[in-house]
């Protein structure tokens, strides 16, 4: 077990930031911690890393209790903070070398690791640049390089793509997958469900300091009643009997807006064919049709009654 957190409680006065939080992370996986802002993701990470005091619970990393003095454990962890944490007075190379040097004392080894980290994040052309001269995307890449240069076994990335352009975001996500392929276990926190869906092998959804659902992307979507979202463009919607659509089996809801019919169905087979047959019987012409599988937002919505990005 890479991380084992049991019954973690963290309070800020009357506010319970972590409410009997439990988490188990297996070697080699990419675990996504998904939740809206304020759900407790960063607090959980900071407690796991022994930066924050907590009121109750136990934290073990690589089967050893985690503490500020657990240097053997810390040596195996790399962290990419939510905020860019670099020295403005040092160049790209010097920043990576400094933070790598906190873990690796041998100069030759460090030189090799720093070169690999620079190569990994694609900052080869910017090694002599100072952070203030870098764009937001490049700065984020530097932040990542500073966190992973020492080749950790466990990498924790706390919302590393906040305020990053799409191209840099893709680079970062591809980089995380590459790190995982190289053997690193990864915990990735985000409130962007698309990112989590894209890279995580397992997802924990957090709300109000608790994990409310956990599993693979498919597992989570199976937990809810909602099936696909079927969108149909109707050529003669005036002939539609909406109540008849709603009365069909497995249909949760149906809404007509101008020519656009949106039907939410529960999990079941052949829902689309059933609806098409019904519309054909009613002599309603159909233009475009497309169907969407449920998203993590639907999962969150169904469990908590609110949108993930509320």
């Amino acid at each position: 077990m890479v991380i084992n957190v049991k019954n973690l409680v963290k309070r800020y006065g009357d506010l319970i930031a972590l409410d009997h939080f439990n988490l188990a992370v297996q070697e080699g996986e990419i675990l996504g911690l998904l939740g809206p802002n304020g759900s407790g993701k960063t607090t959980a990470i900071n407690c796991i890393l022994s930066l924050l005091k907590y009121d109750k619970g136990t934290i073990e990393i690589y089967d050893q209790p985690m503490s500020p003095e657990a240097y053997d454990i810390k040596r195996q962890i790399g962290v990419v903070m939510q905020n860019v944490a670099v020295f403005n007075e040092l160049t790209v190379y010097e920043n990576i070398d400094y933070f790598c040097g906190l873990y690796v004392s041998d100069k030759q080894t460090r030189k090799k690791l720093v070169a690999e980290a620079i190569d990994f994040v694609g900052l080869n052309d910017f090694t002599k640049f100072y952070p203030k001269k870098l764009s937001g995307g490049l700065l984020r890449r530097l932040n990542i390089a500073c966190g992973i240069a020492h080749k950790p076994r466990l990498i924790i990335l706390d919302e590393p793509t906040v305020a990053v352009d799409p191209q840099s975001r893709n680079n970062i996500l591809e980089g995380i997958l590459k790190l995982n392929r190289q053997g690193a276990t990864i915990i990735y926190t985000s409130h962007y469900m698309e990112e989590v869906e894209q890279i995580c092998s397992r997802i924990a959804i957090m709300d109000k300091g608790k994990i409310i659902a956990m599993g693979t992307n498919e597992d989570l979507k199976k937990m809810i009643k909602s099936g696909e979202h079927i969108n149909l463009e109707l050529l003669n919607p005036e002939h539609l009997d909406l109540s008849a659509i709603k009365a069909l089996p497995h249909i949760i809801s149906a809404e007509l807006t101008d020519h656009q019919l949106v039907v939410k169905s529960s999990r079941g087979k052949n829902n689309l064919i059933m609806i098409l047959d019904h519309l054909k019987d009613q002599n309603i012409g159909i233009g475009k049709i497309y169907s969407e599988p449920p998203t993590l937002n639907d999962v969150f919505l169904e469990i908590t009654g609110k949108e993930l990005r509320d």
Partner: peptide, 19 residues
């Protein structure tokens, strides 16, 4: 400021290191 995790982000990073 550079060494305290509650005062700066680099401070937090330094506190995470095995030093």
């Amino acid at each position: 400021v550079a060494i305290q995790a509650d005062l700066s982000d680099v401070g937090a990073r330094i506190n995470l290191a095995p030093t």
